[in-house]
């Protein structure tokens, strides 16, 4: 919310605390991953089951050395989506904003949890960061391919015709796995997407 080290005013702090309590009581976040053997072939992930993902040049280089791939999804869940939609932007924009921030933090935390489980399963192998369609030159339309590989509606997430996810607070993508993959490498210097919001924030 931009506060950094500044304490929110009491009214805002109380509201955030009470909404967090509500979310704790109702949210049912979930995550899943599917590990498949495969290899990088130029800029394409080729799984042994025949599936392919055209991840592009940037991710192609970051995934180099991967011997298998974890396809993943994570979501804040349908109940959270309902909670978020219960606030009207016309009448309660402050709660809408706070709910949006909570949802973003929640789904990223679920993503971290998914990575924790993955790490346990693949130990002692290394893994890359998680990469998602729509970033670093990997077309968003590849969501369809990804979801098809994961059974259609992993974690109950649905794709719209333009490949957006519902519940909105969801993430998806893949992670490279192998003894030699680079765990740390990522960031704006590897991506040429001038319009990315992460790049804009750094400027």
């Amino acid at each position: 919310m931009g506060y950094g080290k500044v304490e929110p005013k009491a009214e805002v702090a109380t509201l955030i605390a009470s909404m967090l309590e509500e979310v704790k009581a109702l949210a049912a976040p979930s995550c899943t991953f599917l590990v498949e053997k495969g290899k990088m072939c130029n800029d394409t992930v080729v799984l042994n089951n025949g599936a392919q993902f055209g991840v592009g040049k940037i991710l192609g280089s970051l995934l180099t050395g991967s011997e298998s791939f974890a396809l993943f999804t994570a979501t804040a869940g349908e109940d959270f989506q309902q909670f978020q939609k219960s606030f009207s932007p016309q009448d309660d924009i402050l709660c809408c904003f706070i709910a949006d921030v909570i949802g973003t933090l929640l789904v990223e935390a679920v993503g971290d949890r998914m990575e924790f489980f993955l790490k346990q399963q693949i130990h002692p192998l290394k893994h890359t960061h998680r990469f998602s369609p729509g970033y670093c030159g990997w077309p968003l339309t590849e969501q369809k391919n990804l979801f098809a590989q994961m059974g259609g509606n992993p974690c109950g997430i649905r794709l719209s015709d333009v490949c957006l996810m519902t519940p909105e607070k969801s993430i998806s993508g893949l992670i490279g796995i192998g003894p030699q993959v680079n765990e740390k490498v990522y960031g704006c210097r590897y991506c040429n997407l001038e319009t990315c919001y992460k790049r804009k924030k750094r400027k």
Partner: peptide, 11 residues
Amino acid sequence: AFVPELLMSAR
């Protein structure tokens, strides 16, 4: 001031 304060004032 931050976004929540802006929104409270707007309200």
